[in-house]
Simulated assay, not measured.
Amino acid sequence: MEPGNHTHFPEFILLGLSEEAELQPLLFGLFLSMYLVTFTGNLLIILAITTDAHLHTPMYFFLSNLSFADICFTSTTVPKMLMNIQMQTKVITYEDCMTQMYFFMLFAALDNFLLTVMAYDRFVAICHPLHYTVIMNPRFCGLLLLTSWVLSFLDSVLNGLMVLQLSFCTEVEISHFFCELNQVVQLACSDTFLNDLVMYSTTGLLGVVPLTGILFSYMKIVSSILKISSAGGKYKVFSTCGSHLSVVSLFYGTAFGVYLSSAAIQNSRSSAMASVMYTVATPMLNPFIYSLRNKDIKQALRELFS
Rank of each mutant, 00 (worst) to 15 (best):
F9N: 07
F12L: 13
E20L: 14
L23E: 14
P25D: 02
G29T: 09
S33I: 06
M34G: 10
M34Q: 08
Y35Q: 14
T40G: 06
T40H: 04
G41A: 04
T50K: 12
T51K: 12
T51M: 08
L55Q: 01
H56A: 07
F61V: 05
F62Q: 04
S67R: 04
F73M: 12
T74R: 11
T76A: 15
T76S: 14
V78W: 07
P79K: 05
Q86V: 06
M87F: 08
K90V: 11
I92N: 08
T93K: 09
Y94S: 11
E95W: 09
D96I: 05
M101W: 02
M101C: 13
Y102V: 04
M105F: 07
D111E: 15
D111L: 14
N112P: 01
F113C: 12
L114V: 08
T116P: 02
V117L: 11
V117H: 07
Y120F: 15
R122P: 00
Y132N: 01
T133C: 10
I135G: 00
N137P: 01
R139W: 12
F140Y: 15
F140E: 01
F140W: 14
G142T: 03
L144Q: 13
L145T: 05
T147M: 14
S148R: 01
L151N: 05
L154A: 12
D155A: 14
S156F: 02
V157I: 14
L158T: 15
M162K: 07
V163H: 05
V163R: 09
L164P: 05
V172M: 11
I174F: 04
I174G: 07
N182V: 14
V184Q: 08
C189D: 14
S190N: 03
L194M: 12
N195R: 00
D196V: 02
G207R: 01
T212S: 14
T212L: 15
L215N: 00
S217E: 02
S217R: 01
Y218L: 03
M219P: 00
K220M: 10
V222E: 10
S224F: 01
I225K: 01
V237C: 09
F238C: 06
C241W: 07
G242V: 00
S243Y: 00
S243W: 00
L245W: 04
S246Q: 12
L250W: 10
F251Q: 12
G257N: 06
L260M: 13
A263N: 06
A264F: 15
I265E: 11
N267Q: 04
R269S: 10
M273A: 15
V276F: 08
Y278P: 03
Y278A: 03
A281L: 15
T282W: 11
T282Y: 14
P283I: 09
M284D: 05
I289V: 15
Y290D: 03
Y290S: 03
S291V: 07
R293F: 12
R293D: 04
R293M: 15
I297F: 04
R302G: 04
